[in-house]
């Protein structure tokens, strides 16, 4: 799969005057802005008007160190993981460290001691502490697959820069969380593998994300997941899904040589960026995993 440099041109053309990027059109959001930067990183190209982008991103950081999804939202959310995936110099080392510190303070609400105390008062018995901990989309809610994957990837980048036991353990714990949320078919959906006794189906996007986040994990635990991801490759449902699948399978050297290319259009900026990032990964550079 070749890198489509015209896709990079299209991404550049979509930049807003404020330096950020929209999902399709309109105001800038943090997620597409980070994806635009990662696409440039994957394509080994300099982002346009990076000074404005840095200012825009800097203004999106909350006093607590987290990042908000767009200017009109006064709340740090899951997009902090995406920003933390960027090289520290993009937003400055101090801002980057504060983002990571915010991230490390977050976990799914199901692990909250206050919640456990409330359940104790209600049920009269104390459940054991939850052993596994992922990340929520929005503070004060439960952990889910996508934000956990992105947090793992951000922490892995940081671990490569400054390895600590605490970081390694948090990553390992979150990877175990992902494995605990795997669907019966071997893939992942948003994070609900089973509900009211019924198995739920997995999705291509989240299956690919989980495989990227599980890069380096024991492959003997993942054959069903590889099969699920490879099975999804033939479905033409979304370009983002196809890109995540390729990124995920490539992270484990499991992408079949004859894997069909996506024929779905890129409908949002993250779609275009992910497609470009998957192409770069096939040429040996995975921006989520490589420095």
């Amino acid at each position: 799969m070749e890198i489509d440099h015209s896709a990079l041109d299209n991404i550049q053309a979509a930049q807003n005057p404020d330096g950020g990027w929209p999902y399709r059109q309109g105001g800038s959001w943090t997620e597409p802005t980070v994806y635009a930067l990662l696409a440039h990183q994957a394509g080994r190209a300099a982002p346009p008007r990076i000074a404005e982008t840095k200012i825009w991103l800097g203004a999106s950081q909350q006093p607590d160190g987290g990042f908000k999804p767009r200017r009109s939202v006064d709340q740090s959310t899951w997009v902090t993981s995406l920003v933390a995936l960027l090289p520290p110099e993009t937003i400055g080392a101090e801002s980057h460290a504060r983002a990571l510190a915010w991230l490390l303070r977050q976990s799914g609400m199901e692990t909250s001691p206050f919640l456990r105390l409330g359940n104790f008062i209600r049920d009269g018995k104390l459940a054991g502490p939850p052993a596994l901990s992922g990340w929520p989309w929005f503070p004060g809610t439960a952990a889910w697959v996508t934000p956990t994957c992105l947090a793992i990837l951000a922490l892995k980048q940081d671990y490569r820069r400054r390895p600590t036991n605490g970081l390694r353990e948090r990553i390992a714990n979150a990877q175990a969380f992902l494995l605990s949320r795997r669907c019966a078919d071997g893939g992942w959906n948003h994070g609900s593998a089973r509900s009211l006794g019924y198995n739920s189906d997995s999705y291509p996007e989240t299956t690919g994300q989980a495989l990227v986040a599980l890069a380096g994990a024991d492959p003997s635990r993942l054959p069903e997941s590889f099969r699920a991801a490879q099975g999804f490759l033939g479905q033409q449902r979304s370009s983002a899904g196809a890109a995540w699948l390729r990124l995920g399978l490539l992270a484990h050297q499991q992408l079949p040589a004859a894997a069909p290319l996506s024929s779905m259009p890129c409908r949002t900026l993250p779609d275009s960026a992910l497609t470009l990032m998957a192409a770069a990964a096939e040429r040996g550079y995975n921006v989520f995993l490589d420095t």
Binding site: Y23, W29, E31, P69, R70, V73, Q75, T77, W78, M109, P136, W137, F138, G140, T141, A142, W144, T146, P147, H190
Partner: peptide, 13 residues
């Protein structure tokens, strides 16, 4: 979802 995520778990909580 761009603010609250997928799923919009804040509504469940």
């Amino acid at each position: 979802g761009g603010v609250y995520g997928w799923p919009k778990n804040v509504l469940h909580w």
